[in-house]
């Protein structure tokens, strides 16, 4: 029997608090923002590692992005992942959901014999959550999004997953291979393992694949493979507010506030 193989899709995003916007040009200055692992992807790898803790499984990280991703995502190896595949090529740049999911799916094909793909809920820099479904479609596999718990059958061919939906939950059973996204904050990501750290940060070989290493059609990758374009940036309109500052001692402020709030009672 082949080794149970989990691929975790992870990406790197600029730290949200540090992105500056030039008020004139409206251009985003991401250059000066420090980067971090997309926080929802930390929940994804934690779910994968918990499965690995329970059964013999191999966990691989898969990412599409510039070489800069490498040093940052090595943290995943230090947490417990076994391999790290980075799809990196200038031709991949500028990809929207269609091109990103195509490229990642071809990467998964190339890795081969994958049982489970686990993604984060969404990208903190784009927040769309469409990549997991797109990967599943390119591969023709089932998908369960917003998962919070995983349970594998004894023969590792079926996965039962609980997913969180507004107001409740669902439990789905799907045949493997399948693609999942996990609910943000559905677990507590572990810290780096101190013993693994020297290997993960320095020695471990990262497998970097360019366009010619995975079988992709040039028309479907990067900017060329992306139907959507950004046609403009605007400053969002904000509603004008009174901006009336209340003054006085705490007593008087509370009284003023009570007067403002009283008419809004919705009960009775």
């Amino acid at each position: 029997m082949h080794e149970f193989h989990i691929v975790v899709c992870m990406k790197v995003v600029p730290k949200a608090e540090e992105i500056r916007v030039d008020p004139e040009s409206l251009l985003l200055d991401r250059e000066n923002a420090r980067s971090e692992i997309n926080p929802p992807d930390m929940n994804a790898i934690e779910h994968a590692l918990r499965i690995k803790d329970q059964c013999r499984a191999r966990v691989s990280i898969l990412s599409m992005g510039p070489p800069l991703f490498e040093s940052i995502l090595r943290v995943g190896l230090a947490m417990g992942a076994d391999d790290f595949y980075l799809l990196s090529d200038r031709a991949f740049a500028g990809a929207d959901t269609l091109a990103t999911t195509y490229t990642l799916a071809r990467g998964i094909d190339k890795i081969g014999d994958v049982d489970l793909v686990i993604c984060g809920e969404e990208s903190a820099d784009g927040a769309t959550g469409q990549v997991p479904a797109g990967i599943a479609e390119w591969l023709g596999w089932p998908q369960v999004t917003l998962a919070t718990e995983f349970q594998l059958s004894d023969d590792y061919t079926v996965c039962t997953a609980r997913r969180e939906i507004p107001g409740g939950y669902e439990v789905h059973r799907v045949k493997l291979p399948a693609v999942f996204s996990v609910k943000t904050a559905s677990n507590e990501p572990r810290f780096m393992d101190f013993d693994r750290k020297p290997w993960a940060m320095e020695e471990a070989g990262v497998i970097v694949w360019s366009r010619s290493d995975i079988e992709v059609e040039d028309d479907l990758i990067g900017l060329k493979g992306s139907p959507t374009i950004v046609s403009g940036l605007e400053q969002a309109e904000t509603r004008a507010r009174q901006q009336h500052m209340l003054e006085g001692d705490p007593e008087s402020i509370a009284a003023q506030l009570a007067e403002i709030l009283a008419p809004f009672h919705t009960r009775n």
Binding site: I19, G232, A236
Partner: peptide, 12 residues
């Protein structure tokens, strides 16, 4: 979602 109240307009 880009921060700073910037909105992007997207087209296909």
């Amino acid at each position: 979602g880009f921060g700073g109240g910037v909105i992007a307009l997207l087209e296909s």
